[in-house]
């Protein structure tokens, strides 16, 4: 069985609640374990907030989120027309072994997603960022 959820999201912070609610409903329908719902929400928040906060110079824009739920995997696709950003190469690796005094504030978001998903693919095509994440169940 394969099911699909598509969302068009505006670049404004209050969209986060709508994404979370949609993911929770979809996960319930598809019988996801709670930790998969958590991972998907985390990935969409971290990457979605990046697009909202850093993707565009100004103004209200829209980007697309698609979830494809299959028996053995979950695929997330995020497509945005903001500035080029490849989370695999453009995000700094945090030093997670540093002492409290030396730990910088922030910089964990993309790292979480990389650690919690099984696959991450990026391409820039026709002026858009295409990010694909896969979590195997």
């Amino acid at each position: 069985m394969s099911a699909r959820l598509s969302l068009t999201v505006k670049t404004q912070a209050d969209e986060l609640a709508r994404i979370t609610a949609a993911v929770e409903d979809f996960g319930e329908q598809q019988d996801w374990p709670p930790d998969l719902v958590f991972r998907v929400n985390l990935a969409l928040e971290e990457l979605g907030m990046n697009i909202m906060n850093h993707g565009y110079d100004a103004g209200l824009h829209e980007f697309e989120i698609t979830l494809i739920s299959e028996d053995d995997s979950l695929t997330i696709e995020i497509v945005d027309g903001g500035r080029p950003f490849d989370p695999l190469h453009d995000a700094k690796q945090p030093d997670v072994g540093a002492a409290i005094e030396d730990r910088p504030i922030g910089g964990l978001g993309v790292y979480f997603v990389r650690e919690m998903m099984d696959e991450m693919h990026y391409k820039r095509e026709r002026g858009k960022n295409h990010l694909t994440l896969v979590s195997r169940r």
Binding site: E101, L108, F112
Partner: peptide, 30 residues
């Protein structure tokens, strides 16, 4: 999310500066 953990780290730094102890407990799986 990382936005919440950022606040936890800020608290850890501030408590360290004030020489107060800090701990967390009862963390669920994820």
């Amino acid at each position: 999310s990382s936005a919440g953990l950022r606040v936890v780290l800020l608290a850890a730094k501030e408590l360290r500066k004030q020489s107060k102890q800090f701990a967390v407990c009862s963390l669920a799986g994820s």
